[in-house]
Design a protein around this nucleic acid. Structure first.
Lengths: 213, 213
DNA sequence: GGGCCGGTAGTCAAATTTGGCTAGCTCTCT
DNA sequence: AGAGAGCTAGCCAAATTTGACTACCGGCCC
């Protein structure tokens, strides 16, 4: 799975009620078009699909005042909220090496209580360590390393990445345990959406890091 | 782009002439079904598509001795070889955070001369550093960090990953410069395909790291 | 001597993703 | 006043990816 469902559900949820273009703007504000596959086509597709599956409720709305075709507003359903939280928990703990998944989950982690977020992050570290152990067991056999030739570099790279990811996660755990950020039930949450009329400092089309490659 | 085209082209090239099932087996031998999207459907699709585009040449073959449907054998064309090398060079230098792309390229890097591989890897490091500079410039503005709340952790994660990736690449450069592995034109290459009848120690279905998540 | 497991070699529909396209409106410049 | 740029809002075809399914054969077990 990609991160798009979590992103779209999270965006709709923060708005209460949103149409596709708003979601698209939020994701762009978060820079998601640069670190995930959040392109217009994918966003609208995800909205429709999730509406069909009952995760979102679609309301047909008359053409807006500012031109453009008739639009559809979406609300998250009970079932959609469950899916949202399930994805969030899953992506915080899953070590699947795709940075977009973790990144999306980081953006929403404060929707969980602090203690739960900490538990999930600790589980994440545990999973990375397990993964590392299983890889080194299978790919560093008794015959010693080197028998794979340059292919051994692949394993070396994986292990290095895993170690680096675990280390970073431990740092995050410490910061969160030390009281950083505002989690669910701790008062005014940090707002990550644009207010009506506010301008987006990170609009697409800027000469960004996304241009690396 | 995903890594599948490079993987399939590389597999066909190593065989000289291969049918889909052989490619599928090679990729499985390399563990590619665990770190990339190399599933049967994707492999056969890529073969057909690249044959249509002239990167591969397809030969219809009579049903094999061992049952099953009539099969198709593929050979890489001149154009396919060019595309293969272009992808390889691109993936070795591109910092696009998707580990499958780099992993695939690492598996084939010895198809290039040692000096070229070194140059590409150095370019890779340069690109990562550029990327890092551009990110920190845009996302650590004058108002100081912390104004993004927990969203700042996302940038922190990216930067950490970039640094880790650059460091690893520098290590690889040193090993290669020090004479490790056998590159193009340096004698008998390391064989990464199964010989006829050899058994695959990494067959699918084993309890691997891929089961993390 | 029938059943079924595993290997060979793939196909197929459905879901997703990509990249570009449309169409109406407003604002600015000339 | 008209051209054109830019914003709002979203659609679409084509390509890709997923996950499950097919069909055939040989051998093993009972």
């Amino acid at each position: 799975m990609s991160a798009i469902r979590l992103l779209v559900l999270g965006a709709v949820r923060q708005h209460g009620r949103a149409h596709g273009y708003q979601v698209r703007n939020d994701l762009e504000y978060w820079g998601a078009h640069e670190w995930s596959n959040a392109k217009p086509g994918s966003i609208y597709h995800a909205l429709k699909q999730m509406a069909k599956q009952g995760l979102l409720l679609a309301h047909e709305i008359a053409p807006s005042t500012a031109g453009g075709p008739p639009r559809v507003e979406y609300e998250i359903t009970e079932q959609g909220t469950e899916e949202y939280l399930a994805l969030l928990r899953d992506y915080l703990t899953a070590y699947d090496q795709r940075p977009d998944v973790l990144t999306a989950a980081l953006g929403f982690m404060v929707d969980l209580p602090r203690e739960e977020a900490l538990a999930l992050l600790e589980e994440r570290v545990r999973k990375i360590e397990e993964w590392r152990a299983s890889v080194t067991e299978y790919y560093m056999p008794a015959e010693g390393p080197g028998q794979y030739g340059h292919i051994g570099e692949i394993m070396n790279y994986w292990v290095h990445s895993a170690d680096s990811g675990a280390e970073w996660t431990r740092g995050l755990i410490e910061r969160v345990r030390g009281g950083a950020y505002t989690f669910a039930g701790e008062g005014e949450p940090f707002v990550g959406v644009l207010a009506e009329g506010e301008e987006n400092p990170f609009a697409a089309g800027r000469p960004h890091y996304g241009d690396a490659r």
